[in-house]
Design a protein around this nucleic acid. Structure first.
Lengths: 154, 154
DNA sequence: ATTTTGGTTCTGTAATTACAGAATTAAAAA
DNA sequence: TTTTTAATTCTGTAATTACAGAACCAAAAT
């Protein structure tokens, strides 16, 4: 299955996307390959061949991606290969985690506020406002996601 | 102004937080210093001394942090120094940008869907569902932030 | 006019990252 | 039993990152 030029370009684009999120380049490209691949699943060797990388790199990448829940695999009867794929079932909770990661800063800011003296009332006030805002977002994100699930179900 | 041990620890913690977001360690520690500092503003030299880093490192960091809008400075009459600080006014739009960054993936996924054939209806369907979800979140985030502003104003 | 202050820019480097390649292993096939 | 397949693990390395240090520069103070 030779990939089209367009698909190859997309894999690179997806790779860059995940690289921006702190992942190693190859890790993101593997996710990209799974996304654009017709079967939406790839074997170890297919990754090696399509992306032109070493087996060691693929092995490390798959170990990491599986450990972090980004990738899973299934097997087929009478076939020794593993078929790696994206676990698409629960993307909502994935997204929720990502969104909540941003508001994690709340905890640190709370500590900052405790540690700060009273000499700079203006700044302390801004900080408190910011904290209120973060807390608001933190509370509303799960509500938002629940709202989506409701709407979808109806 | 000698910083307390607790504040120093907090600076490191904040540094790690921003390092996780892809920033250089020092960049995050400078933001941390500004957060815990009583005056909530620091001079170039104060950064050098409190964080025990070179002037070049501080210069580079401040250039970057100002370019990306994370840091600003003001001056004082009869004082040549710049007083660097966090621009706390518009943290809501900062947060909005961060949240919207996550849903940027929508654009790439849309391209993926266009490029995929019809052979894997199941996967394509999951992809479409995921896209719907991302679009929903993308639409609702600005609404959420507006809601906060309303509530605060009243 | 020269020195000092506040900061920048350039050059080098230790440490880390992101792999490649070879050796290795474990299970299944021949 | 030997060989093949599917993957892992270990070792090395090119490239990049995150700084330090020194030289430099411009404006203000002396």
């Amino acid at each position: 299955m030779a990939l089209s030029e367009k698909k190859r370009a997309l894999i690179e684009k997806i790779g860059v996307h995940f690289e921006f999120k702190g992942m190693q380049p190859l890790f993101g490209r593997i996710l990209g390959l799974m996304l654009v691949h017709e079967r939406a699943e790839v074997t170890f060797d297919e990754i090696v061949e399509e992306l032109n990388v070493s087996k060691s790199a693929v092995s490390n990448a798959l170990t990491f991606l599986q450990a972090t829940g980004k990738v899973a695999y299934h097997t087929k009867p009478g076939d020794r290969k593993r078929y790696f794929h994206l676990p698409m079932k629960d993307f909502t909770s994935d997204m929720e985690k990502e969104l909540m990661e941003i508001v994690k800063f709340e905890e640190v800011l709370e500590e900052v506020l405790v540690e700060r003296g009273e000499t700079n009332a203006d700044f302390n006030c801004s900080l408190k406002e910011f904290l209120n805002f973060i807390k608001f977002i933190k509370m509303e994100i799960p509500v938002l996601i629940e709202k989506y699930k409701q709407q979808k179900g109806s």
